[in-house]
Each structure stands twice: as structure tokens, then as C-alpha cells.
Computed example of a mutant assay.
Amino acid sequence: MSELSPRLRDEIDDRVAEAFDAYLAERLAEPGPLRDAVRGRWRWWVPAVAALAGVAATLLVCHGWS
């Protein structure tokens, strides 16, 4: 598999982040457990999960699958 250029990789990362932000905004606008959790006392877990997902994605990109 060929390597992606750093510029292309950054552009893909930006687009994925924008799509994820739009998805979360859409989900938070709908009534349900996600919106209730963000508004309730468990508000801390949403950014914690997002941060952990970001760290995991970064590790996979930087160090590959192996």
C-alpha cells in the first residue's frame, strides 16, 4: 500500500473531524439518551470518549495496524 502525502493525510483528517462534529451536533439535537447524558450529571464522559477515540485514531495512523 502506498503512503499518503502529509498534506493529503491532513486534509482527510480535517474532513473526518468535520463530519464527526456535524454528526454529533445532529445527534445532540435529537431527543434521546445522548442528549440527556450531555445535559445531565454524566456530562464528563462525552469529551472523555471523544478524547480517547482521538488518541486511538492517532496511534493507528502514526504507528499503523501492527
Results as ranks from 00 to 15, higher is better:
residue 56 A to C: 04
residue 50 A to N: 05
residue 66 S to P: 09
residue 62 C to E: 15
residue 17 A to N: 11
residue 21 D to G: 00
residue 49 V to I: 06
residue 23 Y to Q: 11
residue 36 D to L: 04
residue 63 H to W: 13
residue 1 M to F: 10
residue 19 A to N: 01
residue 21 D to M: 05
residue 36 D to G: 10
residue 29 A to Q: 09
residue 37 A to T: 13
residue 53 A to Y: 11
residue 10 D to G: 08
residue 32 G to I: 01
residue 15 R to C: 03
residue 8 L to F: 13
residue 64 G to I: 01
residue 41 R to D: 12
residue 11 E to Q: 07
residue 27 R to G: 04
residue 38 V to A: 09
residue 31 P to R: 13
residue 62 C to P: 02
residue 58 T to V: 14
residue 25 A to R: 05
residue 28 L to P: 00
residue 8 L to E: 15
residue 43 R to E: 06
residue 37 A to K: 04
residue 20 F to W: 08
residue 7 R to D: 15
residue 37 A to N: 07
residue 41 R to Y: 10
residue 32 G to P: 05
residue 1 M to Q: 08
residue 10 D to M: 10
residue 61 V to Q: 14
residue 14 D to E: 10
residue 12 I to S: 02
residue 7 R to E: 15
residue 13 D to C: 14
residue 29 A to F: 13
residue 29 A to T: 05
residue 66 S to C: 13
residue 45 W to N: 10
residue 26 E to L: 09
residue 11 E to M: 01
residue 59 L to Y: 05
residue 23 Y to E: 14
residue 66 S to F: 11
residue 64 G to F: 07
residue 41 R to W: 08
residue 25 A to Q: 12
residue 19 A to P: 09
residue 25 A to V: 07
residue 62 C to Y: 11
residue 55 V to T: 07
residue 47 P to C: 06
residue 53 A to F: 04
residue 48 A to W: 07
residue 10 D to A: 15
residue 8 L to N: 14
residue 37 A to G: 08
residue 6 P to I: 12
